[in-house]
Design a protein around this nucleic acid. Structure first.
Lengths: 340, 340
DNA sequence: CTGAAAGCGCTTACAG
DNA sequence: CTGAAAGCGCTTACAG
């Protein structure tokens, strides 16, 4: 009952039922114009042989496959959340989902992975694709929805309202009395990174606090990139009283560096992240951060893609989803609130 | 830069480069016997047109695709863990991964989904497949590894040591002084469900405690199935002092029912689950349970599949992975330890 | 070193 | 109502 011989093809069924493959195809696809008795014969042969049509052959021949694709680079917790949302949106939709993940995790090849995989799927296998946080702009012969596009992208996309999220972080810190607020930026090509920095800047300017370029570190969303930047900020003669990192991963790194330097959070330093990954709640102290629902991003992306494929999509092709500030233990008023 | 026309095919490249598709194919696949100048022409045409070979066409023609498949019914947290393990094992292996999930979540079609999808992928797209918790025995023309097979399955598989895990739960409860231990079983076709019940029985027998069939409820791993069973157990004139549910989902339901009935856990009732899903740690009180590393299951399944496909697998085709008891707040000695 | 041709497993006009 | 044939985009002997 384990590994059996060659797969059963449509020709096998045709031979067993004594008809042509064309007829088998008609029965399999429920087309009209086949006699009841032929249908019965074919059905029984299908049953007997355990035939299932080959996804590959079918999709090569047909224009429409009813399969949507999702291309992702890696498999983190947030990817899983996205997938749950996607599956929910696709439930009973008639579309199946194929997820393509390349194993070449850290190779040179990885730049442009999304475009490569997309193109390989697009011609034939899938009717539409979701691409999660690509490295660059993507183009395709089929509808595509990008979750977290690069800045300036014109492809349909779903993004969290990073600008509002970042603004609320800085407003929160300002309200606590902070005036020297450091920022560790993310990979600047991504729209998300740009918006988070922009929110930081605007909120400061709106409050009449000058933006000090010395307090901005250039990270890349990789947690490791944040460590030296945090250290540099904190070793200044006039260190910031709060650091806002553009991702939770980087913020958790800031927490670590602060601890190593003998600083107590939030007494000596307030720290804020962005994303609300599960680890942020478990940190000690809990990390104040901005929640962006990855589930929701996945859900909305799938919903848009579905409508794009069927041609029913109305309205904006660039969805902005709300974010929410989550206040935990890593923020408090600065030790000495010095107002000029 | 968004949705562009028809996909670029090999013929397009051939035409642009002034050669035959056979030659393009040779260049794309790095075959010997093409002149340097031709290679250069073809390469430049590929670059210019942005050509990528069609996954579907390639895999239809070739016997080997270097793509492994994973077929799953749903997308829960544990599926995500499995996937992380699979991706880790496949990292830099030269195999890409395709995950096929059907959207038809709750339909009649769902019985036997794994066999259907497996067959549709197997002939052509994938060199091997992982199937996660199937409904029945699977067969295929390509190597398959099942995570959590049905009982009596002969397909290569990876499973947690459910027997040892369940045994350790009951030994823990016995050591605390419990003698009337209720059990809520899982979907009995699954080997995991059977082993967990068997562990429960054996541990009782080993301790000289008779197995009372009245204390065994027949659930199906669905949390909802546990509620009436727990209620029935707790409303008995001689209720158990502890309930061991065969999954965390069901155990959390028991916790809920107990609360509704005004019982305080663990004072009035000890509760134990199985799986160690994230929610079990967040319950109030924390749920004592058995940890089975889904990450590890995925990792080992992928490792085995890889070797099965390349024909290098040595040793057992049925892997049993260790489990570990995780003691949290939901278990304590019974209120009155009555020893006969 | 290169191309014409067959064929992977299907579907779809086109005849009959 | 049914079948022979063409073709989806590739790869691979087979010639040359």
């Amino acid at each position: 009952m384990a590994e059996v011989g060659a797969p059963v093809t449509m020709s096998d069924v045709a031979r067993a039922a004594g008809v042509s493959t064309a007829t088998v195809s008609r029965v399999v696809n429920g087309r009209y114009g086949v006699s009841a008795s032929t249908i019965a014969q074919v059905r029984s042969a299908i049953e007997r042989l355990g035939y299932e049509s080959s996804l590959v052959a079918t999709s090569l021949r047909r224009s429409r496959t009813n399969v949507l694709g999702l291309v992702t680079h890696s498999f983190q917790s947030y990817t899983a959340e996205v997938l749950k949302g996607v599956m929910q949106a696709l439930s009973r939709s008639g579309f199946d989902l194929i997820i393509y993940a390349n194993s070449d995790l850290y190779e040179t090849y990885s730049e442009g992975w999304e475009q490569r995989h997309l193109t390989r799927l697009a011609g034939t296998l899938t009717d539409g694709c979701i691409v999660v946080t690509p490295w660059g702009e993507v183009r395709s012969s089929i509808p595509v929805v990008v979750i977290d596009p690069v800045k300036g992208s014109s492809v349909p996309s779903v993004t969290a309202d990073n600008l509002a999220g970042a603004t609320s972080v800085v407003e929160h810190l300002l309200a606590l009395g902070h005036r020297r607020i450091g920022f560790i930026a993310g990979r600047s090509r991504l729209e998300a990174a740009w918006s988070r920095e922009e929110g930081y800047r605007r909120a400061l300017v709106a409050a009449g606090v000058p933006v000090d370029p010395e307090l901005i570190g250039r990270g890349d969303f990789n947690p490791e990139s944040a460590a030296p930047l945090a250290r540099a900020l904190l070793e200044r003669p006039d260190p910031p009283t709060a650091i806002f990192a553009a991702s939770d991963g980087m913020a958790l790194k800031v927490l670590e560096v602060a601890k190593q330097m003998g600083l107590v959070v939030p007494r000596d330093l307030s720290v804020v992240g962005f994303d609300n990954i599960p680890e942020s709640a478990l940190a000690e102290p809990g990390l104040t951060t901005v929640d962006q629902s990855m589930y929701r991003l996945g859900y909305e992306a799938a919903r848009m893609l579905k409508s794009l494929v069927t041609g029913e999509w109305q309205g904006d092709r660039r969805l902005l989803l709300p974010t929410g500030l989550v206040i935990r233990g890593s923020t408090s008023p600065p030790a000495s609130t010095v107002e000029p």
